[in-house]
Design a binder for these strands. Sequence first.
RNA 1: UCCGCAGUAGCUCAAUGGCAGAGCAUUCGGCUGUUAACCGAAGGGUUGUAGGUUCGAGUCCUACCUGCGGAGCCA
Length: 436
Amino acid sequence: MNQVYVNELKNHIGEEVTLKGWLYNSRSSGKLLFLLVRDGTGIVQCVVFKPNNESLFETAKSLGQESSIIVRGKVREDARSPIGVELEVTDLEVIQNVEGYPITPKEHGTEFLMDHRHLWIRSRRQHAILRIRHTVVKATRDFLDNRGFILADAPIFTPNACEGTTTLFEVNYFDHDKAYLTQSGQLYNEATAAAFGRSYCFGPVFRAERSKTRRHLTEFWMVEPEMAYATLDDVMNLAEEMVCYVVERVLEERRDDLKTLERDVSKLERIKAPFPRIHYDEAVKILQDGYEKGALENKFEWGGDFGAPDETYLSSQFELPVFVHHFPASIKAFYFERDKERPELALGADLLAPEGYGEIVGGGQRAFDLEFLEKQIAEHNLPREAFEWYLDLRRYGSVPHAGFGMGIERCVAWICGIEHVRETIPFPRMLYRLRP
RNA sequence: UCCGCAGUAGCUCAAUGGCAGAGCAUUCGGCUGUUAACCGAAGGGUUGUAGGUUCGAGUCCUACCUGCGGAGCCA
């Protein structure tokens, strides 16, 4: 059987081919029957004409949505088809005739669709989003691989809070200790960067925050590159290039999917380096101006961390993603290097996506000095013993080094232009959503 | 954790405190080019749960459950 996939049909015009897939939807018009068949690569309309084969027509007519079928037919060019071709059915094998598929081609609510997520991912829109996710992941990895970064993944079970800030998921780890699900591979990356020079990890991370907004998942994927002998500027340069590369690849490879999502691609086409880079002091000024103009409800004070409305306002001032750098050290994790001129500032940078999608990249330069780090750990009330291995990195060949993390789902949500990150991962985990 | 909104047929939603309704889906019938096809007919209900007010509650009140949006927190 010469099985052909829907996305290859254009190369088989005039030939008789076999499609293996599922019935997406069907329409009938008396003696004509239109079967929309999907096979994972696309959807094609298959036409059955009653007088040509009456029993085949009756079989085809009885098929329910999502019935699994093998269709044989002749590929025909047709201007009316969205993909340029359709199939004139000559034979039909029913693997399973389905009754009562829950997701109909009409509107459904979020709760219903999320309860049926395992089936929802068969639909056009979800397909487009998840294919774009695939390309974002692939492009990210290609980008780092091509620059000599070594994939060295960090563990998911960790003995302690890596930054000591966010709420962690706790699990029993055999007889004695509790373990925690990682919230970032960063500390481990610093070790692998000292081993390989340039390294990255790519995996799921977990946050037990009780956040329920369109930007939050409890389990999400993060790519975290780390570089030895690198500075804050190196981090911003790398993140900027990486984001541009990823957007470019999606524009190249996923135009059709962006179209399905009705994404305004002109907004993506102008994502080119350099991105604006603003100092925290300047960001504060912009936010205070925003308050004066009445665009923000609360007056932002120097020293605070940005809330969601602040981030949205800041990003709305620019068409490109914008870096904010040199945050007050007091609102950042213990491991940040300090600014030499102004030690109250941390050498960190966040990248805010345009159109209010929030922070997609966060990173910076790590503390170099052993004594400084020891002091930081003490001041943050972190258990010193747990960080001994980390302190070793400052004892044995410490170098200036830096890195960042990029949240895959927020990045995908921004590129797709969709409302909520829950659609950017096959099976989202959220505050009130653990199933399916 | 806090604030706000919602829950009625398989799904999406209507119903001034007064007979429980429509579209889609399903089943049956019609149609040779449909694009969420269309046209006709039929079946389909413990109105989230428990209590209360009322002659009468889907509708008003209280509590709880479930979900949604947001805040805080976070990427």
